[in-house]
Computed example of a mutant assay.
Amino acid sequence: QPNIKRRIGKYEVGRTIGEGSFAKVKFARNCDTGQAVAIKILDKDMVLKHKMAEQIRREIATMKLINHPNVVRLYEVMASRTKIFIVLEFVGGGELFDKIANHGRMGEDEARKYFQHLINAVDYCHSRGVFHRDLKLENLLMDDAGNLKVSDFGLSAFFQEARDDGLLHTACGTPNYVAPEVLNDHGYEGAIADIWSCGVILFVLLAGYLPFDESNVIDLYRKISCAEYTCPPWLPFGAAKLIARILEPNP
């Protein structure tokens, strides 16, 4: 029995390399060039019931133009009758989340390098009107050379809605990384929310754990709303000051 490979467009699809609540990610290869890619597969129903088609089209058009060393490239988007396929750059070095989970907190120099990569990526995308809205360690990948690559930029529109007031609603973000104004659902600016998440990420890189981490969601939201967290004694003074400036509950 020959091994019949599944094809999506010009891509030969292989193993599943990731799975989330909204999407499955598969390893694939471009049959024309041999280039390795990752294909994120979404159910069309999930997306269309959010009535986000217009914003998705806009963000994806922008993402196709974005070419930055610290942002996972988006090559193309295809659709079948029931699925949407997002073809992305394949990044082989794993998640920053696993690095911290397995090896603990980072030294100041290493954390500074990754934070710099993160801010470069965020600044570049924001300057082009693309926001992330769900920045967390699980979305920060590393390539084989140890460079940070932010994944899912511009894709949060799939799980969001912008209302008539022009602000974004529905907290799609992971609660521990989410800014107070996102939790309050008064609508929020994508840029401000992303910067808050960067502050949480910097804390985790240097501390080895989350600044806001309660099993009870009510307690978690309360602590985030007033930015109630404690820096461990080993946190460098400069970093602690920067984190305090970022994690400002009333920006």
Rank of each mutant, 00 (worst) to 15 (best):
R133W: 02
D164N: 04
G173A: 11
I195M: 13
A111P: 06
D109M: 11
N139Q: 09
N176W: 00
F131D: 07
S197W: 04
H132E: 11
E138V: 07
N147V: 02
L167V: 02
E110R: 10
I201A: 12
C172H: 03
A191F: 02
R163Y: 01
L141M: 14
R112D: 13
F115L: 12
S156N: 03
Q160W: 00
R133K: 06
F159A: 15
A191P: 00
P175C: 03
G166P: 00
L137N: 09
G187D: 09
H126N: 11
E181S: 06
G187S: 05
A171H: 02
K113L: 11
S151C: 15
G187A: 07
G199T: 06
G166S: 03
Y114F: 15
N184K: 15
L155M: 10
V150G: 05
S156W: 01
D109Y: 01
T174M: 06
N147E: 15
A145P: 00
L135A: 08
G154D: 09
F131T: 15
H117K: 12
Q160K: 09
L183M: 11
G190W: 02
M142T: 13
V130E: 11
K149F: 04
L206G: 08
R112P: 01
L167T: 12
H169I: 04
D152C: 03
L140K: 06
A191E: 14
I201C: 11
E138K: 05
I192Q: 14
S151K: 01
F158D: 06
I201K: 10
R163V: 00
A179C: 04
F131C: 14
G187N: 07
P175D: 08
A157G: 14
H126P: 05
V122G: 05
E181W: 02
L205P: 06
I195E: 08
Y177F: 15
Y124P: 05
A121N: 08
H132A: 08
G190Q: 05
A191L: 07
D134A: 05
G199L: 09
D185R: 12
A193W: 01
H186E: 15
F203H: 10
E189A: 13
L168R: 02
D143K: 09
L141F: 09
I119D: 07
V178N: 02
S156A: 15
E189Y: 10
H117F: 12
A121L: 10
R112M: 13
C198Q: 10
D194E: 08
G173H: 03
F159D: 10
V178K: 02
F131M: 14
S127I: 05
E189P: 00
Y177S: 12
Y188R: 08
F203V: 11
T170I: 04
H186Y: 02
D143N: 14
A193H: 03
D164Q: 06
E181I: 07
A162E: 14
M142L: 15
A193K: 03
D143S: 10
V130S: 08
A162W: 00
Y188N: 09
Q116L: 12
L168I: 13
G166W: 00
E110F: 00
E138L: 08
I195D: 07
K136P: 04
V122M: 09
S127Q: 14
N184G: 06
L183R: 03
Q160S: 13
A193M: 05
G173Q: 05
D123V: 06
